[in-house]
Design a binder for these strands. Structure first.
Lengths: 349, 349
DNA sequence: CTGTTAGCGCATTCAA
DNA sequence: TTGAATGCGCTAACAG
């Protein structure tokens, strides 16, 4: 590998000093006589000069790199978030170091250490570690942190999260406003906080409208392992629907805790010759890619994941650039995507 | 932000020189008296020392960061690749700068520039730019490049790609070996080279078995825009199947150019009351997540995307670490995932 | 085994 | 408006 061209080489050729070359090439706005400026620029170009950011970074102690720590990029939700982050980072001249923690707090910690060593000044993290002391410590050392998709009360950082409960309310109220009162709820285990919130939203909405929930229509699976190569959430949808259909009185609508489960629900309804949405309306949650590819296409709740990434990144860079130094706490609102799996209830109340 | 602890601080406190501190802390293996070594380690720990990799990097001109340039991370295929890359990078002590080019050669070029400025020594790229001169130039400047999922004959770099044609052969031969001879092919436009190869594989397989392709059973759509919010590939599957079913003689199997299209195919067959796989077998291509969630679950072809990431990264790091300096060209082989959308043909030959 | 010294590429202070 | 000189944090050559 041949030696790099440095400002020293340019200075020599332009018969000036490195200081002046630096002033021109770093776009510092420092006054340099136009003629000299042109000459330097020309020579830099001829020599194919590539600035060495490492030199600059060592001198100025600023890094145009941010770290992003997420569980896994293959989760479509996180890949959208990361895309949003990176789009903003690029626009604002920053770059992104991607770190998949695989939900291991050990890996997460290793990454935090490496990021610090690389002198990263800003971090967007969906942390899996329950020990937030580590993060607090890093913040005291001057690291800017924006937490996403989680509530960390102990952490004095900016946070951007979703309103899962509101999503549950939205889905349920959507059905109620379509005239449904007999609304079932089907979900995988409530061991994730987001599912718990969705369920609470469902109950809240019913309560808001004075509808008493029917115990028999609330089916929460206890399974969370893949069965026979079939997605467990899909499978739960099938099994829970099968159970639901043994009830003496059937609901007119089903709210599934996520889209995969909703697919299972629709699948089983179809198998038992129950028409969606004519006989039963179905609403999902997540708006994954395939929800518009099933038939009927699925009405569902969308969390603005790409937006979350953009907002998180803008928040972080505002802090880094000193535009804003206050901590921000944002709760992103869900919205309902109406498709063909739902319709007005026409049965007698 | 309070001042960083440097090896100078440690040297002072340990009453030794920065050289010795560096020798201990950089794990150089250079001999240092155990007693002194311990003392330095202890003080470093007390002072909460965090090595500044920027300093090291400036001195040694080595960067433990690689760049990854892909079209978009939200494409599940690329997110798997990136996960594979990052898992290996982490194991080997490297970090990943993620760059989404959004299929814009302008953005791609900007990223290449920035990566160079950041002194990245290695790059894994799925390039969209037709101009490979730029990449060649970078290689001459000492950048190590591994190209993925594309054939760049002009580029003298390591390459890892998939055998799409083989995938087409595999799918078709799978059906033939199940006794099918009347095999239709349904695809979106062949404007992507991968689709073209799959189609060629289909024809090759038929030819290998002396089966003459029936023109009426080869349906290649010309549409590539989303229609009414429905995925166009899904929609193409529906439309092409509808057309296929107008033929006087029907095939006993359908090979769809990708999974989404296959879902459309199955959807339309179902709508027209044709049973899969009893009456018609269906094979897809891609093995996307959803293919095991439809019913019947879809038999399909899988490209080892995660593996591609791992191999690409290992190849690159071998070059960077000097383990291997030769260029490597690997074609990853597809495999068939048999599920429930296919069965033995029982109709008369 | 240890210390002195130089310098990686750059930005910035100070003096001119 | 320009240049000389310094030092960011670290490693490595060299001398001891």
């Amino acid at each position: 590998m041949k030696k790099q061209v440095t400002i020293y080489d340019i200075a020599k050729k332009a018969q000036t000093s490195t200081a002046t070359v630096s002033r021109v090439l770093s776009k510092s706005g420092y006054p340099v006589k136009p003629e000299l400026r042109e000459r330097i620029l020309k020579i830099a170009n001829e020599l194919n000069y590539i600035p060495n950011m490492i030199g600059r970074q060592l001198k100025t102690n600023t890094s145009m790199t941010i770290g992003v720590v997420i569980p896994t990029i293959t989760n479509p939700f996180y890949s959208s978030v990361v895309l949003g982050i990176e789009d903003i980072a690029r626009e604002r001249g920053y770059q992104v170091l991607l770190c998949n923690s695989h939900r291991s707090s050990k890996i997460e910690e290793e990454y935090l250490k490496t990021l610090l060593e690389k002198q990263v000044k800003g971090l967007i993290i969906s942390s899996v570690s329950s020990d937030k002391d580590e993060l607090s410590k890093l913040m005291k050392m001057g690291l800017n942190i924006v937490a996403i998709d989680q509530s960390i009360n102990e952490l004095n950082a900016s946070q951007i999260h979703f309103d899962y409960r509101k999503g549950g309310i939205l889905a349920t109220e959507f059905l109620i406003e379509k005239g449904h009162t007999k609304i079932a709820f089907i979900s995988s285990p409530l061991n994730r906080i987001s599912r718990q919130y969705v369920y609470e939203g469902y109950k809240d909405a019913l309560m808001n409208y004075g509808i008493k929930p029917n115990r028999a229509w609330i089916l929460i699976s206890s399974r969370e392992e893949e069965v026979s190569e079939m997605n467990y959430e899909f499978n739960n949808g099938i099994l829970m629907t099968r159970e639901l259909l043994t009830c003496s009185e059937l609901p007119t609508a089903i709210f599934a805790g996520n889209d995969m489960t909703a697919f299972g629900v629709m699948n089983e309804l179809n198998a038992q010759n129950i028409k969606v949405p004519e006989q039963i309306s179905v609403v999902g949650f997540d708006n994954i890619e395939f929800s518009k590819m099933v038939s009927p296409t699925l009405t569902t709740i969308q969390q603005p994941d790409y937006e979350m990434g953009r907002i998180a990144c803008n928040t972080l860079l505002d802090q880094l650039d000193g535009v804003n130094t206050q901590n921000i706490d944002i709760i992103l609102q869900p919205r309902i995507i109406e498709r063909n799996s739902t319709k007005e209830n026409e049965t007698e109340g």
